[in-house]
């Protein structure tokens, strides 16, 4: 039980690999194309990024944030919806081959792309809300929100190199948030330890009152 509680408390750290996985996906596409002459090998692996994002953000939402304003709540659940759509669409397209059957409607691809947009839009709302409400470190939440705006633009349509840079920024924003929370927590622990030590040394220097 203690282990589980420990894991849940630190699950926000999944934001770091989640963002890295997202940010590295253009490289993944390139390597997949280079090695297998198709980007599909990479895209089959891609769902790991949104899944990690969802788990990491759930850790933040449930085990880090003490106060949750309306924006953070709306943003979080929007991200959950977007991540779910992304994963479902990717699975339908690259594992089930739905679009090979329904060529014209391409339902899986449509769900996947819609998932991207909803995910990024939710991240914008969540990040901006958390920054505004100071429910997360401002210096972590605001860059996260800005990166999410870039992500939202990048998934709207293919903007070439600039779009790729914005896509990567989105991933970096998630990692940034995870690292910011880590630093804040470590700093908090250190501060608490120093305070404890100070208190302890103060109490040890105080002569015991004796009668």
């Amino acid at each position: 039980m203690r282990v589980l509680r420990f894991l849940l408390r630190w699950s926000f750290l999944l934001l770091v690999p989640a963002g890295a996985a997202w940010a590295l996906s253009p490289l993944g596409v390139y390597l997949s194309e280079y090695a297998f002459r198709t980007p599909n090998v990479f895209w089959r692996l891609f769902p790991s990024a949104p899944i990690l994002m969802l788990l990491g953000l759930a850790g933040v939402f449930f085990f880090v944030m003490r106060e949750k304003g309306i924006f953070a709540k709306v943003g979080f659940w929007t991200v959950v919806l977007g991540g779910f759509l992304t994963v479902v669409g990717t699975f339908g397209k690259y594992y089930l081959g739905l679009d090979d059957v329904y060529i014209m409607t391409a339902p899986a691809y449509a769900v996947m792309r819609a998932g991207f947009v909803v995910l990024a839009a939710g991240a914008v709302v969540f990040g901006a809300g958390a920054a505004r409400e100071r429910s997360l470190p401002f210096w972590g939440a605001l860059p996260f929100a800005i990166a999410a705006v870039a992500g939202l633009v990048s998934v709207a349509r293919d903007f070439g190199e600039v779009g790729a840079a914005m896509w990567i920024s989105f991933g970096v924003g998630w990692s940034w948030l995870g690292l910011a929370l880590l630093i804040e927590r470590v700093a908090g622990c250190l501060k608490k330890r120093r305070a404890d030590e100070a208190e302890h040394s103060a109490s040890s220097k105080t002569p015991a009152t004796s009668i």
Binding site: S25, D100, M104, Y109, D158, E161, V162, A164
Partner: peptide, 22 residues
């Protein structure tokens, strides 16, 4: 800095292709 550095990743679409695959 990231934006500048990542521009070197160009030449390949970062988004999955799909939609009408006809």
């Amino acid at each position: 800095a990231l934006l500048g550095a990542t521009s070197a990743c160009g030449g390949m679409s970062y988004l999955p292709s799909g939609g009408s695959r006809m």
